[in-house]
Amino acid sequence: MPDAHVEFRNVSKTFDGETYVAQDINLQVPRGEFLTLLGPSGSGKTTCLMMLAGFEAPSSGEILVDGVPVHDTPPHRRAYGIVFQNYALFPHMSVEKNLAFPLQVRGVEKARQQEQVARVLELVQLQGFGARRPTQLSGGQQQRIAIARALVYEPELVLMDEPLGALDRQLREEMQYEIRRIQDAVGVTMLYVTHDQGEAMVMSDRIAVFEAGRIKQLAAPITLYEEPNDPFVASFIGENNRLAGVVQTVEDDICIVDVKGHTVHAAQVSKTTQAGDDVLVVLRPERISVQPRNHDYSNVHRAKVVDLTFVGDHLRVLLHACGNESLIAKIPNTAGHGSVLEGDHINIGWATLDCRAIPI
């Protein structure tokens, strides 16, 4: 990627010389992209952000910004905007003084400071709050001020480490759209760390999914959801049924898989998959049709309804099918859904391209 704003080249990090918290990270981020580093605790995502910020040094490999290695540049000279989960606002200063502080340490003249502070307060829609202190603001307002402070000196790169983790669910969801609106308005490159896959799906241009210090898949949210190419990604992004099986044949990029004596047609993920290989067939619950009215599906199987759970906009159906006792389907909460009852024996179906045979 010749125009990469940020680039990791074979970056690894170990604290004890034996266990790697980040290993062989290769990543290119174009200018203006919103990239999320997503993974469970201990997966290496925050370590990568801290190495980019300069708070940690890579054990090997190099990190470049605008094509220039940054290893010898101390954190305070990297001039990135940084937002942490705890906001890190000065409680004894007013909002205006908190926002002006980064400008003061950079020697910006007073008149320019006032202009920039007014600009970012308008950007985060908190005009008129400049005289208040952080303790007089709500959690969401404090987070907006933290974002405004990261943007006040007009950095080209902003790093965010779990910035919404301390907020309640409703406010967190509101702030997801707010952060994305701000990023779109400013056009800044943003690297965002979270363990919340729903948060990542809403906000990101692309998502790098981390597990055990490695990037398992890097793609747009819709691609990660619809086309996972790794068992971990399939389980971590959204909900998936996972059926272990053995490939019988491969025909025109379609795997014919034996799943506990049941034949399943699934899309081939790896071109190297061949007969006899163990695979994991993954299938989203919402792609399973309950009581299909026709036989257009390549996969049609008998199932027993074990349990029905009302979840507002849909019903969650627990099924025994294909030799598995915990297959999940989702039925939209629409008129007629009551035709399926606990204990019923029914047909279920799904399209070949709605399930994927992932090598294991």
Results as ranks from 00 to 15, higher is better:
Leu99Pro: 11
Leu218Tyr: 10
Pro91Cys: 13
Thr36Asn: 03
Ala150Asn: 03
Arg242Glu: 14
Val269Asp: 13
Glu162Pro: 14
Glu227Cys: 12
Ile207Arg: 02
Leu353Met: 09
Thr263Leu: 15
Arg31Ile: 02
Ile256Tyr: 09
Thr352Asn: 10
Ser204Lys: 02
Gln116Pro: 07
Asn241Ser: 08
Arg181Asp: 09
His345Lys: 04
Pro58Trp: 01
Ile331Lys: 02
Arg172Tyr: 14
Lys97Gly: 05
Lys330Gln: 11
His301Gln: 04
Ile215Gly: 05
Thr194Cys: 07
Thr189Ile: 01
Val70Tyr: 04
Phe90Lys: 11
Glu115Ser: 09
Tyr153Leu: 03
Arg9Tyr: 02
Met50Phe: 10
Phe55Asp: 04
Cys322Val: 14
Gly130Val: 10
Gln274Gly: 08
Asn333Tyr: 12
Gly245Lys: 02
Met93Asn: 10
Glu342Cys: 05
Ser289Phe: 01
Thr334Ala: 04
Leu224His: 15
Glu96Gly: 13
Val317Pro: 06
Lys216Arg: 09
Gln141Arg: 05
Ser270Leu: 11
Val108Trp: 06
Ile256Pro: 14
Val21Met: 13
Pro75Ser: 10
Asn241Gln: 08
Arg242Thr: 14
Ile182Phe: 01
Thr273Glu: 08
Gln143Asp: 12
Phe8Lys: 02
Lys260Ile: 15
Glu162Tyr: 14
Ala219Asp: 08
Leu319Glu: 01
Glu342Val: 09
Leu280Ile: 12
Ala220Glu: 14
Met203Asn: 06
Asp344Phe: 00
Met50Cys: 11
Asp230Lys: 04
Gly107Tyr: 11
Val250Leu: 09
Val259Lys: 05
Ile348Val: 12
Arg302Gln: 03
Asp313Ala: 09
Leu283Asn: 05
Ile346Met: 00
Ser326Gly: 12
Ile328Lys: 11
Val186Gln: 01
Pro231Cys: 08
Pro69Met: 06
Lys13Arg: 01
Ala351Met: 10
Val124Gly: 03
Tyr297Asn: 06
Met203Val: 10
